[in-house]
Design a protein around this nucleic acid. Structure first.
Lengths: 142, 142
DNA sequence: GATGCTATGTATAACGA
DNA sequence: TTCGTTATACATAGCAT
């Protein structure tokens, strides 16, 4: 559309991508408004550009919460429950990561190493030696 | 657009309205897909026609839940109840903990230490030395 | 009503400043 | 970069099935 036909694939040139995004974003928002007025539709449109900036359009006769409620009823997808579950899973996941990092940290500090076997101790020693090398090398520059 | 220009106001003839809705709905969905691919955007589009039928498009790289989460962060508008908010805060808290542990771990492995000053390097060296002592002591028992 | 077909109005890709 | 401008490609209003 425009001076040349383009194929629908990611625009590699980032400044072109930005310009195209801005123009098309305005285009979609306009279309959303038009269908709302012309056809009595209710539209919820949320766009995030790659820069992270958000744009939205919600039909004036409604609210996002309303739309989501209707979405919930129409699709049967339990957004809230799913959201809740996702958050819980995410917390579990991050906490587990946390825990294993804590253990690793303690080991590196020479704590709680009674349960380690000889091979693990060797690996730990090597890691510490290596870290020490890096630090001393850096220190030497000062 | 088409055989004659139209003004943007409710189409009174209900069958025309229905036809226009169907055509424009497809148009917007197409545009939404296009901007997603062309510009790396993330789009959530939900449309209800006056008949009550729903249509949606969510960028393949994401989920409605994700988009709503980002919407929440970007707009500050509260879509969730307090419980979800608490969970979100918990995640943020744990993730921050996570991050600082990751940094500490990297430092102990001699990585990313360019930003450290001399005093911090000294402390790091001491910690590594101490850790090494512990490990060697333990190793000696084997 | 739904679908397919154009003539026409719009959106926009490539430029230019 | 970020604006306009314009030549084109695209979307679609009005018809015809």
């Amino acid at each position: 559309m425009g001076r040349g036909k383009i194929e629908i694939k990611r625009i590699e040139n980032s400044s072109n991508r930005q310009v195209t995004y801005s123009k098309r974003k305005n285009g979609i928002l306009k279309k959303a408004k038009e269908i709302t007025v012309l056809c009595d539709a209710q539209v919820s449109l949320i766009i995030f550009g790659s820069s992270g900036k958000m744009h939205e359009y919600i039909s004036p006769s409604t609210t996002l919460t309303d739309v989501l409620d209707r979405y919930h009823k129409a699709s049967g997808k339990r957004l809230w429950d799913a959201k809740h579950e996702n958050l819980s899973n995410e917390i579990d996941r991050v906490k587990k990561e946390n825990e294993s990092m804590q253990i690793e940290l303690r080991h590196l500090k020479g704590e709680d190493i009674n349960s380690l076997n000889y091979k693990e101790l060797m690996a730990l020693e090597e890691a510490l030696d290596h870290g020490l090398d890096g630090v001393r090398e850096k220190k030497a520059i000062f």
